[in-house]
Design a protein around this nucleic acid. Structure first.
Length: 114
DNA sequence: CAGGTGACCAGTC
DNA sequence: CGACTGGCCACCT
């Protein structure tokens, strides 16, 4: 036994954990998280994991996760789809045209912290 | 079991 | 800068 149950959701948990580590007023990208987990070439899996963030517990600040260009690609997965931008602006992040302003300034790299 | 899809990324034209 | 291609791998039908 032992190493039988140690995958699947575990990967998502890892993503959620990193996402929760993102400080307020900061954002990170899927690729950065993927790279931090050692799966830089599987950035898509991070995105899928974020889709599950809504059912995760504690809740994951998925609004702090954007694509590598600072674009709010996953805004339509929120309710309402404008919630993502609202939350970001509420944390002090400026968003314009579904894109984060000063992205490099608010960008938080997990590799830098971990 | 196979095919299509996708909250992505990087490279090329 | 916009559009297209290839790669990556889990989830859904």
């Amino acid at each position: 036994m032992t190493e039988r149950s140690k995958m699947d959701t575990n990967f998502y948990e890892q993503v959620f954990e990193v996402a929760r580590l993102v400080p307020k007023g900061r954002v990170t990208s899927y690729g950065a998280i993927a790279k931090a987990l050692g799966v830089a070439n599987s950035s898509r899996m991070v995105g899928h994991a974020m889709a599950y963030a809504g059912q995760a517990s504690p809740q994951v600040p998925a609004h702090r996760i954007v694509n590598g260009s600072g674009l709010l690609t996953g805004r339509f997965h929120f309710s309402p789809p404008t919630l993502m931008q609202e939350l970001l602006e509420k944390e002090g992040i400026t968003v314009a045209n579904d894109k984060i302003k000063n992205f490099k300034q608010v960008f938080w790299d997990p590799l830098q912290e971990l």
